[in-house]
């Protein structure tokens, strides 16, 4: 090549031409690397340093909890445009929650499913639903014959009964046992809760649950601003991040403030009953005493749920 024979060739071998060529190669290389990293810069919800340094839920002092709540309120307002009211509600003394569901009355209208989604700020698209209503042929409890995609003109259909399934709040929860980081645990009022800031998204609990009750946020949850429920709890319905688990928590933001869960209040037939099993006059105590309580679902796996199905007709 002509450059190699040039008389002005310096001792280090660098000519203007070779310099230009090298820098052109370098520039295109850098551009290629930068553009291949583009998706990384489009990520929105990097955890903040504060969140990264956050302590374990059970080790936080009230002041630290207050700061965390302030951070969460700010994050939710930034991401969803709604200023929420986040609380850290602790279990009440002398309270153990139990749910009872009347299989004779449930008509399978799925209102509970959507009331749950609305109350608990669940992702709308893609959809995450904590309640699954199974349409079952009468005369069997074979779960394999349940259908959760039914869409007839009108429910109930003749020859079928409907069995809503959600987190059973087991007394012996397999999901808690498998969690490698203790991000999920059972509280004294019987609710198994998840710390969404501590969850690493390994999905072991999803695999361990025999009720398909746990759901994974594969994407950042999408919730329109006008459907955000601003009444939030730290262990309850605050919006989740991408890559963490979630499940039914008996609406801790309502029930630990003394109210009924959202699925119960929306049920048009009054099939759903909730209360304190330690209070002998509560509805659930009466039901367990006087009704034909069929079973705890999948009794044989030994999870001992706090969710009972019963009949009264």
């Amino acid at each position: 090549m002509s450059c190699s024979t040039s008389p002005s060739d310096p001792a280090d071998g660098m000519t203007r031409r070779s310099f230009l060529r090298t820098s052109a190669v370098l520039a295109t290389g850098l551009a290629a690397v930068a553009s291949s990293l583009k998706p990384l810069f489009e990520m929105e919800d990097f955890s903040s340093a504060e969140q990264f340094m956050q302590k374990y839920y059970k080790e936080m002092t009230p002041e630290e909890m207050g700061q965390v709540i302030k951070r969460i309120e700010g994050e939710v307002e930034k991401q969803y445009g709604v200023r929420p009211h986040v609380r850290d509600l602790r279990p009440m003394d002398g309270v153990e929650f139990v749910y009872a569901l009347n299989l004779s009355r449930c008509i399978g209208c799925r209102k509970c499913v959507h009331a749950c989604v609305a109350e608990n700020n669940q992702s709308r698209s893609p959809e995450i639903q904590d309640i699954r209503v199974l349409k079952m042929p009468q005369g069997t409890f074979d779960m394999d014959r349940g259908d959760h995609t039914y869409a007839p003109e009108s429910v109930p259909e003749k020859g079928f009964f409907y069995m809503p399934v959600q987190c059973q709040q087991c007394r012996n929860p397999p999901c808690v046992k498998v969690c490698p980081v203790h991000a999920t645990w059972q509280e004294s009022d019987g609710i198994t809760v998840i710390d969404y800031d501590w969850c690493i998204g390994c999905r072991y609990c999803e695999a361990a649950c025999p009720y398909w009750a746990r759901h994974f946020n594969f994407t950042k949850p999408s919730i329109p601003a006008d459907r955000i429920n601003p009444d939030m709890a730290y262990l309850g319905n605050r919006p989740r991040k991408q890559g963490v688990m979630e499940k039914c928590h008996f609406c801790v933001q309502r029930t630990r403030a003394g109210r009924y869960p959202a699925c119960l209040e929306v049920c048009p037939t009054g099939s759903r009953k909730f209360g304190n099993i330690l209070d002998p006059n509560s509805e659930v105590s009466q039901i367990l005493r006087t009704k034909r309580v069929f079973t705890q679902l999948k009794e044989d796996v030994g999870t001992n749920p706090r969710f009972y199905y019963y009949f009264d007709v």
Partner: peptide
């Protein structure tokens, strides 16, 4: 909830079921 002259609880259209990512998968015939 009950019409006193015809007390059986009336049927109603169900809310939409779960939307699946890859269309509606066939469920076991019930």
């Amino acid at each position: 909830c009950h019409d006193p002259h015809s007390p059986k609880f009336p049927g109603r259209p169900p809310a939409p079921g779960p939307h699946q990512l890859h269309g509606q998968s066939p469920t076991p015939a019930a």
